[in-house]
Lab assay of single mutants.
Amino acid sequence: EAHAAIDTFTKYLDIDEDFATVLVEEGFSTLEELAYVPMKELLEIEGLDEPTVEALRERAKNALATIAQ
Rank of each mutant, 00 (worst) to 15 (best):
A2T: 13
A2H: 13
A2K: 14
A2F: 14
H3I: 13
H3N: 10
H3Y: 10
A4M: 11
A4F: 11
A5D: 03
I6W: 04
I6H: 05
I6Q: 04
D7A: 15
T8F: 10
T8E: 06
T8H: 09
T8G: 04
T8W: 09
F9V: 00
F9K: 00
F9T: 00
F9D: 00
T10H: 06
T10E: 03
K11D: 03
K11H: 09
Y12W: 15
L13K: 00
L13N: 00
L13E: 01
L13G: 01
D14Q: 12
D14F: 11
I15N: 01
I15S: 01
I15V: 08
D16Y: 03
D16F: 03
D16W: 04
E17G: 07
E17D: 07
E17S: 10
F19N: 02
F19D: 03
F19L: 14
A20K: 01
T21H: 10
V22L: 15
V22G: 04
V22W: 14
V22D: 02
L23Q: 00
L23I: 03
V24H: 06
V24D: 01
V24K: 03
E25R: 15
E25Q: 14
E26A: 15
E26I: 15
G27L: 02
G27Q: 01
G27V: 01
F28A: 01
F28Q: 01
S29W: 13
S29K: 14
S29G: 07
T30K: 07
E32D: 06
E32M: 10
E33G: 08
E33D: 11
E33Q: 15
L34S: 00
L34E: 00
L34K: 00
L34M: 05
L34G: 01
A35N: 02
A35T: 06
V37L: 12
V37S: 15
M39Q: 07
M39V: 13
M39N: 07
M39P: 07
M39R: 08
M39F: 08
M39S: 08
M39A: 08
K40I: 10
K40R: 11
K40Q: 13
E41I: 13
E41V: 15
E41K: 12
E41T: 14
L42H: 03
L42R: 03
L43D: 03
L43I: 07
L43K: 05
E44P: 05
E44N: 14
E44K: 15
E44M: 14
E44L: 14
I45M: 05
I45W: 04
I45N: 02
I45H: 04
I45Y: 03
E46A: 13
E46D: 12
E46I: 15
E46V: 14
E46H: 12
E46G: 11
G47F: 08
L48F: 09
L48V: 08
D49E: 05
D49M: 04
E50W: 13
E50K: 11
E50F: 12
P51M: 13
P51L: 13
P51A: 15
T52R: 08
T52S: 08
T52A: 12
V53S: 08
V53I: 14
V53D: 01
V53T: 04
V53M: 10
E54A: 12
E54F: 08
E54W: 10
E54Y: 10
A55P: 01
A55F: 08
L56P: 00
L56W: 03
L56D: 01
L56M: 05
R57A: 06
E58C: 06
R59Q: 11
R59L: 12
R59I: 07
R59Y: 05
R59D: 06
R59T: 08
A60Q: 01
A60F: 03
A60E: 02
A60S: 03
K61V: 09
K61P: 02
K61C: 05
K61M: 09
K61W: 06
N62E: 13
N62G: 07
N62Y: 10
N62H: 12
A63D: 00
A63H: 06
A63W: 05
L64E: 01
L64Q: 02
L64R: 00
A65N: 10
A65F: 08
A65V: 11
A65H: 09
T66S: 12
T66P: 03
I67Y: 05
I67H: 06
A68W: 10
Q69D: 10
Q69C: 07
